[in-house]
Amino acid sequence: MTEFYPADQYGYSTLLSEDERQVLGRLRAVLDHEVQPLLADYWERGEFPDQIIKPLVDLNLMEPPELTRDGAVPGALYGGFRNFELARTDASVATFYNAQSGLFRTAVSLGGSPEQAAAWDPLIRSFTMSGVFALTEPDHGSDIAGGLETSARRIGGTWVVNGVKRWIGGASTADYMAVFARDEADHQIKAFLVRTDAPGVALRKIEGKMSLRIMQNADITLTDVAVQEDHRLQRVNGFPDVAGLLRNMRSDVAWIATGLQAGAYEAALRYVKEREQFGRPLGGFQLIQEKLAAMLGNVTASLGMVVRLTQQQADGIYKDENSALAKMWCAAKARETTALAREICGGNGIILDNSVGRFFADAEAVYSYEGTHEINSLIVGRALTGFGAFR
């Protein structure tokens, strides 16, 4: 099975069923033939290739027929390797897809009432109802629990939402945003499904990014936006509920960080087999082989961590410190692995021709989103010592 994923030295993907591998094989074919050829051009332009959305949606990755026979649910590891496969091609594409399959879907399925989840989840799985997760604000990221400023005021059966959100990925192509706002009455955080085209909603693309350039992030201003009570997610009634959502989402980001490493490793390996210096392939030099071994070790360790974390979560074991540790570790190793890939490729590592430069830059965004390295470290540290070091 190492042939299925060249970076999977220990064969973690053998834990997948044959049906799961077939679905992921179809995904790989679309990524290789319809997505990969577009990436360098669109990355340089800072635009998203909208033409890839339909082929990805048509794959029905959240509800593949092979994996949902007789009402079955796709396995947790399948979902992890789906993120791995996407990120192995491009972190922006993985982030775009995960905004729907991970962030928005989790917000609705866990944050909504059973009735809301039952009504909306089938629409989310088919992309009939597309959405994004709108938590971060211009002045509040790591301190969002206490600092969130977006407000919501209830007037009868209607809520009026005011505030500004930042770094909301994929908002320009989404129908809805799961907007988190502080209730003026009890000062607790609530969540609302807000249409992106609703009166009072203004989206502005964030320009000048050096990372995840394909992903379209937006600044969003909400001015007296009316939301009906039936579009308030009923099980989000304070930050502990938001933290529960984040606990589930961090494992997705750890998988993305691991897939990004695999893509960088494989791109660097291809390069050193083809590139010649001093009359022989670059891959024949000792220092190059040492860097490749270190990269493979990072990917292997990260895969081991995310596979085990996902298995635990499938068994109902959800711990903040476990998902935080995986995100912290895998994203840090993604920085290291992509930097080694860039070193191996020398000057050619900073151009887009061989993908390494794109992975190198994108690792910086993955390192910071869904909880910075420092915040995730403090979540782990709190669990280890019993003392909260947040200020």
Results as ranks from 00 to 15, higher is better:
Met1Cys: 10
Tyr5Asn: 13
Asp8Pro: 01
Tyr10Met: 12
Glu20Val: 08
Arg26Glu: 15
Leu27Val: 07
Arg28Ile: 06
Arg28Gln: 15
Arg28Glu: 15
Glu34Ala: 11
Val35Phe: 11
Leu38His: 09
Phe48Leu: 07
Gln51Met: 12
Pro55Val: 02
Pro55Arg: 01
Pro55Thr: 02
Asp58Tyr: 01
Leu59Lys: 05
Glu63Gln: 13
Gly71Ala: 04
Ala72Glu: 09
Val73Pro: 02
Val73His: 12
Pro74Ile: 05
Gly75Glu: 03
Leu77Trp: 03
Gly79Thr: 01
Phe81Lys: 04
Phe81Tyr: 15
Arg82His: 06
Leu86Asn: 06
Arg88Met: 11
Thr89Met: 13
Asp90Arg: 03
Val93Glu: 10
Phe96Ala: 11
Tyr97His: 12
Ala99Pro: 03
Ser101Gln: 02
Phe104Ser: 07
Thr106Pro: 06
Val108Glu: 03
Ser109His: 07
Gly111Glu: 05
Glu115Lys: 10
Glu115Gly: 07
Ala117Gln: 05
Ile124Ala: 00
Arg125Pro: 00
Ser126Leu: 01
Ser126His: 07
Phe127Ala: 08
Thr128Val: 04
Ser130Ala: 07
Val132Cys: 04
Leu135Ala: 08
Thr136Lys: 03
His140Ile: 02
His140Trp: 10
Gly141Phe: 13
Gly141Ala: 12
Ile144Lys: 01
Gly146Asn: 05
Gly147Ile: 00
Leu148Glu: 00
Glu149Leu: 09
Thr150Tyr: 01
Arg153Phe: 00
Gly156Thr: 04
Gly156His: 08
Gly157Glu: 13
Trp167Tyr: 14
Tyr176Phe: 15
Ala185Ser: 14
Asp186Gln: 02
Val201Asp: 13
Lys205Tyr: 11
Arg213Gly: 02
Met215Phe: 06
Met215Glu: 14
Gln216Phe: 03
Ala218Gln: 12
Leu222Thr: 02
Asp224Phe: 00
Val225Tyr: 09
Gln228Arg: 10
Glu229Lys: 00
Glu229Val: 00
Arg232Ser: 01
Arg232Ala: 00
Gln234Ser: 14
Val236Leu: 01
Asn237Arg: 11
Ala243Gly: 12
Gly244Glu: 12
Leu245Tyr: 03
Leu245Ala: 03
Met249Pro: 04
Arg250Lys: 15
Asp252His: 08
Gln261Arg: 04
Glu266Leu: 02
Leu269Ile: 02
Glu274Cys: 05
Arg275Leu: 12
Glu276Ser: 06
Arg280His: 12
Gly283Asn: 07
Gln286Ile: 05
Leu292Phe: 07
Met295Glu: 12
Met295Trp: 05
Leu296Asn: 14
Thr300Asp: 15
Leu303Glu: 15
Gly304Phe: 08
Met305Phe: 06
Val306Asp: 13
Val306Gln: 11
Leu309Cys: 07
Thr310Phe: 08
Gly316Tyr: 06
Asn322Leu: 13
Asn322Asp: 15
Ser323Glu: 13
Ser323Gln: 11
Ala324Glu: 09
Leu325Asp: 13
Leu325Arg: 13
Ala331Phe: 03
Ala332Ser: 15
Ala332Val: 01
Ala334Leu: 10
Arg342Ser: 14
Cys345Pro: 00
Gly349Ser: 09
Phe360Thr: 08
Ala365Ser: 13
Ser368Cys: 06
Tyr369Lys: 04
Glu370Cys: 11
Glu374Gly: 10
Ser377Tyr: 09
Leu378Pro: 00
